[in-house]
C-alpha cells in the first residue's frame, strides 16, 4: 500500500517537473535546436552563402581543413581566444567574488547599493558606445597616454595601445573586465543573500574568525553561485565578439584579437563560406559544452545541505 502511494506522488512530481519545463523546451526547439541542427547539417557541406546550386557534401572535410590548413587561421584563432579567455576569466571570477564578499560583509545595505550601481554601470552602456569611449581614451592623443605618462613621468611616449599586439590584447581584456565585473558582482551578491545571517552569528558566538567564516560557511554555501558565475563567465569569454570587432573596425590589427567568433564571422559573412563557418561554430560549441560540464562536476554544487 505504502509503496504504491510513494510511487504515485513521485510520479506526479516528476510529471510536474517536466511540465514546468515544457514551455521553454518548445520555445528552444523552434528557435535554438532547429537552427543548431541546421548548423551541424550545413557544416557537412561546402556551402557558399549566395550560391543557388545545391552544395557539395564534403563530410568532415570542413573540420579537417580548419585544423590542418594554416591559411584559414583557425588555430591562431583558438590561441587568441584561449589567451583572451584565460586573461579575462580568472580576474573576473576571482575579483568579483572578492569584491562582492568584501562589500557584503563590511557595509550596510545602502552603501552596498551605491557600490554595486557604480560597478554595474559599464554593463549598461551599449557595446558600440563603450568601444568608442575606449577608442577615444586609447587614441594616441587621448587620455590613456596622458594619464600613464603622467604617472610614470614619461612625457610624450605613445604606448601604442591599439597597435602593439600585446598591448592590444591587454586592452581588449581590460575593456571586457571593465564592462562585466559589475555583472558578476551582482550575481554573487544575490547568491550571498541566500546564506542565512544566523549561521554567521552562530559561528561568531563560537569564536570563528573571518577567514574561517569565509572558508567554512560562505564558500561551500555559495557553490551554486560560484558554478553559475564560472560557467557563465567562461562561456561569455569564449563567445566574445563585439569588443574585438569594434577595435578591428577602428584600425587595430586583426591577428592578435582574431578570436573564434570573429573568425566565424569573417568566414561566414566576408568570405561567404558558411559551411566552414558552421564547422568552426560546432567546434566552439563542443568545447563549451565539455568545459561547462567539467566545471559543474568540479564544483559539484547540486547538493546543498544546511
Amino acid at each position: 500500500m505504502r509503496q504504491k502511494k510513494y510511487r504515485g506522488i513521485e510520479r506526479k512530481l516528476a510529471l510536474w517537473g517536466w511540465g514546468f519545463n515544457i514551455p521553454s523546451l518548445v520555445f528552444f526547439a523552434v528557435f535554438s535546436f532547429a537552427p543548431i541542427f541546421y548548423a551541424i547539417y550545413t557544416s557537412l557541406y561546402d556551402k557558399r552563402v549566395l550560391s543557388l546550386k545545391a552544395p557539395n557534401f564534403v563530410g568532415l572535410k570542413n573540420y579537417i581543413d580548419i585544423f590542418t590548413n594554416k591559411g584559414i587561421g583557425f588555430l591562431d584563432s583558438l590561441k587568441s581566444s584561449a589567451i583572451f579567455s584565460f586573461g579575462a576569466f580568472f580576474p573576473l571570477v576571482i575579483f568579483s567574488l572578492l569584491f562582492s564578499v568584501l562589500v557584503y560583509n563590511n557595509y550596510k545595505a545602502s552603501t552596498q547599493r551605491k557600490f554595486e550601481i557604480l560597478w554595474y554601470t559599464p554593463a549598461v552602456i551599449s557595446s558600440v558606445v563603450a568601444t568608442t569611449i575606449w577608442m577615444l581614451i586609447f587614441d594616441p592623443r587621448g587620455l590613456g597616454n596622458q594619464v600613464v605618462n603622467f604617472i610614470l613621468n614619461t612625457p610624450g611616449v605613445d604606448h601604442r595601445w591599439t597597435s602593439n599586439p600585446s598591448m592590444l590584447r591587454f586592452v581588449t581584456i581590460m575593456v571586457y573586465f571593465w564592462k562585466y565585473i559589475g555583472y558578476y558582482i551582482v550575481l554573487f551578491i544575490t547568491g550571498l543573500g541566500t546564506i542565512p545571517g544566523t549561521l554567521y552569528e552562530a559561528a561568531r558566538i563560537d569564536g570563528a574568525s573571518r577567514m574561517q567564516c569565509f572558508r567554512r560557511i560562505t564558500l561551500p554555501l555559495l557553490k551554486p553561485t560560484i558554478s553559475l558565475v564560472s560557467v557563465l563567465c567562461l562561456i561569455h569569454c569564449l563567445k566574445t565578439f563585439s569588443t574585438q570587432y569594434m577595435f578591428y573596425q577602428s584600425g587595430a590589427p586583426l591577428k592578435p584579437i582574431n578570436v573564434i567568433s570573429l573568425s566565424i564571422y569573417t568566414t561566414g559573412i566576408t568570405n561567404q563560406r558558411i559551411g566552414r563557418a558552421c564547422a568552426m561554430s560546432i567546434i566552439l560549441f563542443a568545447a563549451m559544452i565539455i568545459l561547462s560540464i567539467a566545471q559543474l562536476k568540479l564544483i559539484n554544487a547540486d547538493d546543498i545541505d544546511y
Binding site: L25, V26, F33, A34, Y38
Partner: peptide
Amino acid sequence: KRLFAVLLVLVVAAAIVSA
C-alpha cells in the same frame, strides 16, 4: 515516452526550417 515527445518536437522544428 518523454524522450520520444522531445524528439518529436525537434523533428517538427527541423521540418519547419528545411521547408
